[in-house]
Simulated scan of single mutants.
Amino acid sequence: MNLYPTAARQVRIGDAAAFAGITPRAIRHYHEIGLLPEPERGGDGRRRYGHDDMIRLLWIRKMAEAGISLDDVRVAFGEAREETSDEAGGIESVLGRLEETMAAQEAAIQRRRAVVQRLQAVGSPLGLLSEVVAERLGHLPPGALRPSDLNALLVTERIFGPLGAAIQAGTFIVLATRPDLRAEEDRLEAAEAALDDGVDPDDPRVDELAGQRCAHLLALNEAIEEAGLDAAEERIFGIHDADLAGDEGRRMSAAAAITKMPYDFSPARRRCVELAGRLFGEALADI
């Protein structure tokens, strides 16, 4: 049986759609987006589709079934006309470039799947943090971390990236395993919050509290070293630094964060935090 008759024959849109395994509505859409040239109409005012139109429809369906978007299909046909009279050959060259796009999409899916797997393994919201952070905190028992700890890590990761959050995680590991340090942390946080109640920035309590915060930071630092967490930080840098180099685009500078985040610290509390940080830095330099 000859499937390619020499005599030109044209069919209506319903027959063309049935042969291609699509709907007439889909064909009209292809016309609208420029994917399929609209054929001339017959004497009855209806569109008539020839052999070339049918071949085009079959190619479109096959490419769509392969997961290629209609926009990419249109580009493929457009470049095919420019490169060669053999439409299939032109499409092959475009498919090579589309394969790269799909490979990138597949990699993105793998990253999302990894997040889902972390959520299943360690639970939410810890699993939503970067892998390097979740990995470091994963050995802690359930409930050891407070929601405020996770919130702080989320903010740190946004500003300083996963490595910065992984280092900060060392502090929360110590707080989760040292009740004495956690109690002092709670006391200091409550005292610092009280500075928001109309305390003058030059009030002597600000300097006193800054000194206490500095002493606490030094105690935390010593506990981190005693637990060997500082060595773990070096290992984290060695393993993950290169892998996370591309994370820069997802970070935010500290200066930008200050203008974006709705911080509501009073002048007295801000001065206390700044002074404690300066005292801590000076103390570390003297060690």
Score class of each variant (00 low, 15 high):
7 A>I: 14
10 Q>K: 11
10 Q>R: 06
14 G>R: 12
15 D>G: 03
27 I>D: 01
30 Y>K: 08
37 P>D: 03
38 E>W: 05
48 R>E: 13
51 H>F: 03
71 D>A: 14
73 V>G: 06
83 E>A: 14
85 S>H: 14
86 D>E: 09
87 E>R: 14
90 G>E: 15
91 I>K: 11
92 E>T: 11
95 L>S: 05
95 L>K: 13
95 L>I: 10
97 R>V: 01
107 A>Y: 09
120 Q>W: 05
121 A>I: 14
124 S>A: 08
125 P>E: 01
129 L>F: 07
132 V>T: 04
140 L>F: 13
145 L>S: 08
149 D>G: 02
151 N>C: 12
151 N>Y: 11
153 L>V: 08
156 T>C: 15
162 P>T: 01
171 T>P: 03
172 F>R: 10
175 L>H: 08
180 D>T: 07
182 R>A: 11
187 R>K: 04
187 R>T: 03
188 L>K: 12
189 E>S: 09
190 A>I: 12
191 A>E: 11
192 E>T: 11
210 A>K: 06
212 Q>C: 08
218 L>H: 02
223 A>Q: 11
226 E>K: 13
226 E>G: 01
230 D>G: 05
234 E>Q: 09
238 G>A: 02
243 D>Y: 06
245 A>N: 08
248 E>M: 09
248 E>L: 13
251 R>D: 07
252 M>C: 06
253 S>D: 10
256 A>V: 12
260 K>F: 10
263 Y>E: 10
264 D>Q: 14
266 S>P: 07
269 R>M: 09
273 V>E: 03
274 E>C: 08
277 G>E: 01
282 E>K: 08
284 L>W: 05
